[in-house]
Simulated scan of single mutants.
Amino acid sequence: MKINDVAEYAGVSPATVSRVLNRKKVKEETRKKVEEAIKKLNYTPNFMASNLQRTKSGMLLILVPEISNPYYSPILEGVELTARSRGYNIILGSSYSSEEQLLDYLNLLNKKLVDGVILMEKVSKEKIIKKINDERLYNRIVQCSEYIDENNLSCITIDHKKAAYEAASHLISIGKREFYLFRMKKDFTYSVLRREGFIEALKDNGIELKRENEIILDELSIKESFKQMNILLNNRKIENAGIFAVSDVLGIGIIKALNLKNIKIPQDAAVVGFDNIDFSAVTEPSLTTISQPGYELGKESVKQLLKIIENGSVTPEKIILEHELIVRESTNRKSLK
């Protein structure tokens, strides 16, 4: 059943049927004719087809793995304010790393319900990459923070490996000699690169990370890192330890566990996190961390996405923003004296 069939039955033009469907002004008598025809013919409007006629929705979609992670807050602020300044609104979605959910969200591009997508998770699954390439979605998608080089998408990020190298070098510089790494089980790019940078810094200083000192977590949460740190402390004594967590969320759980066991921070165990979320400044002691320019990551992601949309550019770009080591009480040299 097509709109032309309704128009013919009602004795009006297809344009008039469209006006009725879109609740635009028509004569009441004409409206009744069209509505009767729709009912009689059991016509269901094909809104997907009408969406395909749109040239611009004025909406950008930003996808994160988990909305609850506080790391995303300043990035979302940068995205929203920049998008609004350019005449766009944003939709926030979470895929929870589900392939099917991510594919559903990407379908919004085909329906022209959104003009572009900012992805904040690793795109490596074959079905998703095939969809992006087959449907030429790469000229309407950029990746922010999390990325892989091989997927033909532009990305805005920091040098995660270099930042982790600096974190390890800092722990070495304050005299730590036994090192621990808390990272994610899933192969997120940020976790992989931060691990590489940490281990490389240790090797460059003649130190090897012991296998049993690499703690691999199933989920990114304070609860999980607190649990795993407690297990570690119940099974061995740690002294002069340098602990690196690939996320502040993990670092906060580690500090809580150390405090409950009355382990002196940073004397017995110094801790460095990553991301500089707001909570990291108010832990007791406050958490030394690598600061990412969250707002700028969001801002540059929107600018890059709109550049691609407006210019039709499909040449992927990798934009690296600066990071900073923020030294706080959890590694403060003064506390070591």
Rank of each mutant, 00 (worst) to 15 (best):
K127D: 02
P14I: 01
I215L: 06
V123C: 09
E135P: 12
R86G: 10
S98M: 00
E310A: 06
D248F: 06
I75G: 04
S124Q: 04
V114A: 03
N230H: 05
P316C: 07
N213R: 03
Y88P: 05
R19K: 08
E200N: 08
L325S: 13
G298F: 06
M48W: 01
V34D: 05
K112F: 06
Y96N: 13
I326E: 03
A10P: 13
A201T: 01
K264C: 14
K334Y: 13
G175R: 08
D159K: 05
S13E: 00
E329D: 15
G294P: 07
K125Y: 10
V249A: 11
D248V: 11
K39F: 08
K130F: 03
K161Y: 02
G312H: 04
L108W: 13
Q143I: 08
I290E: 02
K237M: 10
E121P: 07
I309F: 03
N205Q: 02
I62R: 04
M120Q: 08
I216S: 09
Y180K: 12
L220W: 08
E29F: 02
A49S: 13
L217V: 10
E296N: 12
M48D: 10
T289G: 04
Q292P: 12
K2H: 14
K2M: 00
A168D: 03
E239G: 15
Y96T: 05
I38D: 12
L108E: 07
I156E: 11
I158L: 07
L220D: 15
D218S: 10
E35L: 08
E208F: 06
E300S: 06
K56M: 11
K127R: 13
K237D: 13
G197Q: 00
I67H: 02
E214K: 08
P65R: 00
L336F: 05
S13V: 00
R195I: 02
M184N: 02
N133I: 09
I128M: 06
K210E: 15
C144A: 15
H170E: 07
R183N: 15
K264H: 12
I255T: 08
V282C: 12
V17Y: 01
L119W: 09
M229E: 01
M59P: 00
E29Y: 03
F179H: 11
E80G: 01
E66G: 07
I156S: 12
K25R: 08
R194L: 01
I319W: 10
R236N: 13
M59Y: 07
I118Y: 07
I309K: 11
L321M: 14
L217I: 11
A37F: 04
K40I: 07
L137H: 11
E224C: 09
L325P: 15
M59Q: 05
G11R: 10
A10D: 10
L60H: 02
I265T: 15
K256G: 12
L202Y: 01
V192C: 04
K33A: 05
F188A: 11
K223Y: 00
L81S: 15
K256C: 08
I215A: 09
K337N: 04
Y180P: 11
A168E: 03
L108M: 15
G273H: 04
C155D: 01
C144F: 11
N240M: 09
V26H: 09
G251S: 11
L217G: 10
K186T: 13
L321D: 15
G58M: 00
E310C: 05
K303V: 08
K307G: 12
P74S: 02
S85H: 12
I199R: 00
K227F: 09
G11P: 11
